[in-house]
Design a binder for these strands. Structure first.
Lengths: 241, 241
DNA sequence: TTATGTGAACTAATTCACAGCT
DNA sequence: AGCTGTGAATTAGTTCACATAA
């Protein structure tokens, strides 16, 4: 049960980082999912979990889970499974969540506000260092327990709070400029919500969250399903030259 | 320039769809990026584009771009490049965007409202069929040019408007129940914003958008960078058994 | 010439299947 | 007896490099 399609994302150039930490990208992308499943188990009072159960909870198969975890070390007990708390700790450590990362959010529009209000943000390993906007009408406004600061503060906030992660929630038109300022200020990890491809120097890590791309991928599969229903077992319907 | 790390996403089980349309998943995930770059070019009045330029605009290398496009057909002109408008049409067609997909958004909290207000939503190929919430305080409220309907309407909206795509923007606690109702009503594509793994029957396609997962992936790389800075060219620092 | 389209080579990720530890 | 950890096999994705067509 619970079979969904694979979910690769539009990929950028492969990382040409000198030392790559030994953990494959595909594994890194799944560790947060395991971590969430582990927290859910811990909350239910489960102390030990086998790879099958954890894999099911995370929506992957158990061989993949075990191979993924094996990249962090050998933290399971044969014949038994994994100690939930210990594994939480090890996965957190691998992801760098034993420290708390200050994040600056640029853009206090609908999305920026939604981000600032998002509970899971501060929950584990992250805190919002500042919520910035250049619109004077928004500056000073309270969003959750934050006050919107002026975008001019960007460099000061990054420097004083040692911000390594920036989230860009501005309109597409200003996103590249904001990105350039973040990078110049020393931010090396960027989460981009603006619908455009950002250009950054080597050594800066960009991830994008893009609603319309996700919708378009869903549309592709939805279309494929209806085409299959019409063509029934007819094979490629629109494939002639 | 513009080198970012690869960005795979946490993958679910591989698609076991009978006929898979011939287009690799990784390619499908990039087509929306190409499409956006093409629209940007078209707006600037560019009529023809070579694979190098389009690849740069999309943040991939040109060999990948050409191989991706070759899965749709042979729409370029050797020695010249691609006709922008024609390629827009072909990519749109491949993605199923020549029709307009009605989407139902469940959850009118911060995120649901941000989605409903998101301009790019309606822009190309999608329209919001309904914005639903079960909170009586929200029902009837105007968000952009939409009015929030009661979640009880879900089945009726899906049936009457032939909705194939649902977006879940509810708290995690109610997300699975909402998902089950969407699936029962006939929705086969789901965009999940709630921070949990949804369980769905075979044949239903789920994609997730998850802020904290993205942040955690960034944290991993940020950590790796600072570790590298400390260890300098020391190789794996924390790798003993 | 010039830039596409694509076999061939390569690299990454997944899955299998079982040896080995508890 | 049971479940992890992992080599080996498989599959998917990327990049190279060039024949081919405009």
């Amino acid at each position: 049960m619970s079979s969904t399609l694979a979910q690769p994302d539009a990929g950028d150039q492969p990382g040409d980082r000198s030392w790559d930490g030994g953990i494959p990208e595909a594994t890194v992308a799944r560790l947060p999912v395991y971590l969430r499943a582990l927290y859910a188990l811990a909350e239910r009072g489960v102390t030990t979990v086998a790879s099958d159960e954890l894999a099911t909870a995370a929506g992957v198969n158990s061989a993949k889970l075990r191979k993924d975890l094996s990249h962090l070390g050998s933290y399971g007990i044969r014949g038994v499974g994994y100690d939930v708390d210990y594994l939480v700790y090890q996965v957190s450590r691998a992801l760098g969540l034993t420290q708390s990362w200050p994040v600056v959010i640029v853009g206090a529009g609908n999305l920026g506000r939604a981000l600032a209000n998002y509970g899971g943000f501060a929950s584990r390993g992250f805190r919002i260092a500042a919520l910035l906007d250049s619109d004077p009408a928004l500056v000073g406004r309270k969003i959750g327990r934050l006050v919107v600061s002026h975008a001019d503060e960007l460099e000061a906030v990054v420097a004083s709070q040692n911000v390594a992660i920036g989230a860009i929630a501005t309109p597409a038109a200003s996103a590249q400029a904001v990105c350039d300022r973040l990078v110049a200020a020393g931010v090396t990890s960027i989460l981009n919500f603006a619908p455009l491809v950002l250009t950054v120097p080597d050594g800066v890590d960009v991830r994008k969250v893009d609603l319309s791309i996700e919708l378009q991928i869903l549309a592709f599969h939805a279309q494929r399903r209806s085409a299959a229903r019409v063509g029934q077992l007819a094979g490629p319907a629109v494939a002639e030259a």
